[in-house]
Design a protein around this nucleic acid. Structure first.
Lengths: 188, 188, 188, 188
DNA sequence: TATGAATGAGAGTTCATTCAT
DNA sequence: AATGAATGAACTCTCATTCAT
């Protein structure tokens, strides 16, 4: 695949991400995506073998980008400092890639679509669970599983509120409160 | 509307809630709902004047039930005890009415659908914001807005995780951790 | 059929005539007619065996009324005075029974519906042709057929214009002009 | 739009004109038109964006053709000779384009459909009224409005009779009688 | 006689996908 | 690689008609 094709493929994905996240997967037609990406309906099938495939690639690409940013490339052990840094980066990422997160969250609630991604999402989930559990254990938790649940509730809820109505949320204050919660030794 | 009709109407709503929440509003056709409810497609229009109307009734009915459980019929002031009680009841409700919450959350991420319900949801939202803000202020918060965000992130995230995969979540432990977080005087 | 039934039947026909003529046969549903006549959808089938039957009865009834008014009960010979009187009465009738004429004219252009009425309409047509042809012959016409065409064009066109937009037509002036045309000896 | 597409579009319009005029707009379905035009139902929507649009295009196209034939490109003043010529051409047109006139007349009696075309038809009507009124005034009429009504009744009635049953009408004789009526100085 | 729930066929329309060009 | 006409299945919704009550 040459440069020009890659560009077109990327343009399709950009447009699709924007539209899917704003209007929903089912409400956006292939011809609309094609038109807004400046190409013909039929030609999209040279880049993605179906509408669903486009969605899946979208998510996989998004997850890849996420990895590149978050993959600590280390032994899977999080220091306290790295944990705070992780939170900071997570919130930065949400702000920077709002449409992607919006799409992901809307898919989360539609298991039938999500099943297509299961194989790709599972290792990510497991790895995160592992790393964070270890972190909580290392920090003296006697119920790391629940601590993990609490943490992921907090972050998922924060993300959801932000992608749903970013203008009415002061996401930075929320982030600081979350960080300060974990810094507060009461919780150790 | 006699008993038999009420039953059929209810059956339609039950089926629709189940399917909408599992597969998404757009993926479920009226004919499918009709078939699973054991009647003809056309007949559903004797009960709901459109597919959208069915969705709206579903949500409004669900919210009504919610009110009956939560509307404390009081002055809008929450004591600490009532606040914990509220959390308890909220989690009970989520467990008891998982499909409804799943539907609500999937709608939350589809603004175009949500707009239909805006008028009904807004007063609820505003009321909750008012009551909870007052509570945080009364309990010594100097940033009730962020406290509210933190609280609603926690609960929304918890709900989302639970409705997405109830079998992999120990929702009770999470609930206790949330309650104990607020009981812990560190946060006062 | 007792009095009450006749009344209901008549009410249905009145409502149907009004609606069909204003909105068109296909645009008006049986349930709408039933509702506006103050009865149930199903019950209309005790009075007319189908929607089409209702239409046909409507037209036949209307034609009957027309007969009663126009049937000269004489030998089929029109004097000049009777001819002018006929025109006068025709225009009176159009003004008095505008919906009926509107319906008739809209059916005229839909042969497939009209075919159902062919048997009933044919004798009327033939009789009129006969009487009017004789009249034109008696008055010195050497092409009674064309005179008849001219006359029926005039009257049909006048009716059509009137039923289509009665408020923008001074039908009386038109009537007088038509009569005076035939009184004017130039045309003999 | 290339030649082949133009042909198919034209074929659709031809079929639709034939069917609409014979059976009425509401009685003819898009699938029927598609089938008789030899294409799939869905494909018709590549040529017309709705059934209504097809109808409107049909009428507008027909009116355009009419204009090309009738628009004298002059100052709006009709000489006597031009007036007779206009009648001749009108009757020629009716013979040549019977289905179009049949459709137009059937629409005339269905106000709800006609409203769609009001904006396009109004200027034509007004222009005709103006030109013909002037003609009657110039020819010594002291009631041009009624003369106009008389004239348009005659022509409308003639057209209607012809499109309704062309085989039973000698339209040429009727035309000559109309012309000779206006030539006859009695009417001056 | 009267009701209106129920049916089933069919309407207009959309759209993912294919395919000839 | 690129186009968009063409397909066919599916969609929401309507309505004449029937039938149990």
């Amino acid at each position: 695949m040459n440069t020009q094709m890659k560009e077109k493929r990327q343009r399709l994905m950009d447009v699709a991400l924007e539209l899917f996240s704003e209007e929903g997967y089912h409400s956006v037609s292939i011809s609309r995506i094609a038109k807004e990406a400046g190409m013909s309906k039929g030609n999209t099938y040279n880049y993605f073998k179906s509408k669903q495939d486009l969605l899946v690639q979208l998510v996989l690409d998004g997850l890849d980008e996420l990895f590149q940013e978050f993959d600590p490339n280390h032994d899977g052990v999080l220091t306290e400092e790295e944990f705070y840094h992780f939170i900071e980066k997570l919130f930065d990422n949400i702000k920077a890639r709002q449409p992607f997160w919006k799409l992901m969250f809307s898919l989360l609630l539609q298991p039938h679509i999500l099943e297509l991604l299961e194989d790709d999402l599972e290792p990510i989930g497991e790895r995160s669970v592992g790393i964070l559990s270890s972190f909580f254990i290392n920090n003296g938790s006697n119920d790391p599983y629940t601590d993990l649940l609490f943490f992921s509730s907090l972050t998922k809820g924060a993300i959801m509120q932000y992608v749903y109505s970013p203008e009415s949320i002061d996401i930075d204050k929320l982030k600081y409160k979350i960080i300060s919660y974990y810094k507060n030794e009461c919780n150790h």
